[in-house]
Amino acid sequence: MDTQITLRVDGADRPLTVDTRTSLLDAMRERLGATSAKKGCDHGQCGACTVLLDGRRVNSCLVLAVTAEGQEVTTSDGLAADGPHRLHETFVDHDAYQCGYCTPGQITSAAGVLAEAAQGWPSAVTEDLVADRTDLTDAEIRERMSGNLCRCAAYANIVPAVAQVAVEQGVRA
């Protein structure tokens, strides 16, 4: 069933007509030419489609496009609107990818992790649940990034790439 909506992707308003069944991911990739977010599993299990929706990381494959109207969608491309994000630079510096397919999702997810840590959110590996500060240890980064799979297994380099930005942003000791 066709519906007219306007999506705001990486700072630009994009009016389009979509079938209600269309995911935010497919609307971006197939209709708007915004191919930064990738389709891996299409079931919310791999994280390749991760975007920031009003600043929060979500799986865009499980978001129906019609429900995203009025919200700010940010892809990895959008994080580079004013030049590379620090995560882009540290991923390059640490060789935190091989084929690169999962990388835009890793980058947006990591941006979400940093924002969540700045708000003091705990994780499943946080010892002190009521601590008001988060220290993004390696174990914390691994746990918080577990929704992003990398079939090249670049994890060993993704962790330090995220950790470096965490130090710079004051969420890692």
Binding site: G47, R56, R57, V58, N59, S123, A124, T126, G147
Partner: peptide, 19 residues
């Protein structure tokens, strides 16, 4: 209710918990 916070954090992924 630490058990409730821990249970929530043990579920799914960061992306799914946000949504």
């Amino acid at each position: 209710y630490p058990l409730l916070a821990q249970a929530l954090l043990a579920g799914a992924s960061g992306q799914l918990r946000n949504r």
